[in-house]
């Protein structure tokens, strides 16, 4: 028997969102009477941190602290339209919509402040900590709290804005079939090192070294967290997750966590993450969608590492011990024939 070691590499381009129907998301932003801001969306936070990122984007655009912004993901009966949280689209699509809505709200806010300060709105700026002042004259200022009160009770104005993001539609060219399925791509590359037991067919991932190009990381710690989890998921897809061995009938698929396998805390590969930031042209503050992309390159990298280790190509997922053993048997039969 022999345990063989191998190393594989793979790289992916991953589209942010999709093209179908323009992939729209809309957002509404409004202020309360006391100058905090509300973002209303139908996009859903599944735990990936959408609410935090949208609060940051809104706060940065209006010029207020992030703590001043509340994000309500409402529901699809009452919120502005969103295609949904999928296709790594949340940050990019909803983020662009929030920027547009927040800009409109900011404009109204500055107009009200201009009335109060008896200056021109274009001469005003925000300090990011709750005040509006005349550019170059910080002492000529009004708080956003007082500005909102004035808007609500004196000027009868709604400090609010509407935003939407729609991808330019792209249709296939008749002659060539060429089209532009996405406007924004994230990238990733993984080097995986594995051990393959030729007797049992078992594959152990020793290490994965990942580099992710994700546009600008709007919240670096949350990005890192998602990439670490995603890298684990990629290994899980490569080697574990399936409705088998109860094939071929899906009726006999895995019914619970005892049968649906995933690597546990004792099965972790040594994992390294590096982030490259190349801001995208059409993303909010240069962001792309890192979500699903980060769980992809580990799969072909592991498959390539297995090939490097024992010289067999397993092209069906997950790469179970049974599949490895069958491939090894085929390899050995070919060698003796």
């Amino acid at each position: 028997m022999a345990v063989k070691r191998g190393r594989g590499v793979a790289a992916v381009n991953y589209p942010t969102g999709m093209n179908l129907g323009g992939d729209p998301t809309q957002a509404l932003v409004h202020s309360t009477p006391t100058g905090s801001f509300m973002v209303t969306l139908s996009s859903v936070d599944l735990g990936q941190g959408l609410k935090q990122i949208m609060a940051q984007i809104c706060a940065e655009t209006i010029g207020v602290p992030t703590e001043s912004v509340t994000v309500d993901t409402a529901d699809t009966d009452t919120g502005p339209h969103c295609m949904g949280t999928f296709a790594s689209r949340g940050t990019h699509r909803a983020g662009n919509a929030v920027i547009q809505a927040a800009r409109e709200a900011r404009q109204v806010m500055l107009e009200v402040a201009a009335e109060e300060l008896e200056v021109n709105a274009s001469d005003l700026d925000t300090d990011g900590s709750g005040n509006i002042h005349v550019k170059g004259a910080p002492s000529r200022s009004i708080s956003i709290f007082d500005t909102a009160l004035a808007a609500h009770f004196k000027h009868g104005r709604s400090i609010s804005g509407r935003g939407m993001f729609l991808v330019p539609r792209s249709y296939p060219e008749t002659e060539t079939g060429a089209m532009k399925p996405s406007t924004c791509y994230a990238h990733a590359c993984t080097v995986a090192e594995v051990e393959v037991d030729e007797e049992t067919g078992e594959v152990v991932v020793l290490s994965v070294k990942n580099v992710f190009e994700i546009g600008r990381a709007l919240n670096p710690k949350m990005v890192e967290q998602q990439l670490i989890g995603g890298s684990w998921m990629g290994i899980s897809h490569a080697l574990y997750e399936t409705t088998e061995p109860y094939y071929p009938d899906r009726e006999h698929g895995a019914r619970d966590y005892n049968e649906y396998l995933m690597p546990g805390p004792g099965d972790l590969a040594e994992t390294e993450i590096a982030v490259l930031e190349r801001p995208s042209g059409d993303g909010p503050f240069g962001a792309k969608g890192p979500g699903e992309m980060c769980a992809n390159p580990q799969i072909p990298a592991v498959a390539n590492a297995i090939f490097d280790a024992v010289g067999v190509r397993v092209d069906t997922l997950p790469i179970t011990p049974e599949r490895v053993l069958r491939a090894l048997r085929q390899r050995d039969a070919g060698a003796t024939a």
Partner: peptide
């Protein structure tokens, strides 16, 4: 010790390392 202590708990998001 930590790995053993949490090995009866399933996590779908984090890849366990941040929990450890």
């Amino acid at each position: 010790d930590v790995v053993e202590a949490i090995s009866g708990n399933v996590c779908r998001c984090t890849g366990y390392e941040p929990i450890i």
